[in-house]
Amino acid sequence: MPALHRDDIAHLARLSRLQLTDAERDHYGEQLEVILAAVARVAEVAADDVPPTTHAVPVVNVTRPDVVVPCLPRGDVLSGAPAAEDDRFRVPRILDEEEQ
């Protein structure tokens, strides 16, 4: 297992959409190294000829009848929104200045 550097944790945090302080990066970095070292043991068993299990009780091709049913009323859906405007979710800008 490669050692986790501060840059690696910063990269992971960015992928995870988590803003971390330098102190948090160091703390989580140490803990993640310990956890990864413990879980890397899965490599000791299970050779190439073992198929993966994705679900405990496999079910396939689950469909429902193609019937139109009403969705939730707009007011109910927007009632939990952190910000709403004109019957829509209001979100922060999605492009950086230079991309606009």
Binding site: L15, S16, I35, P51, T53
Partner: peptide, 28 residues
């Protein structure tokens, strides 16, 4: 936060087979 970062790591390119893929085989 720990688990989100751990999972993101285990699913990321280059580590998927060694971690998540291998764990699913152990599940078998």
């Amino acid at each position: 936060k720990r688990r989100i970062m751990l999972g993101t790591y285990a699913l990321s390119a280059g580590y998927y087979d060694a971690y998540y893929g291998q764990a699913q085989k152990v599940r078998t």
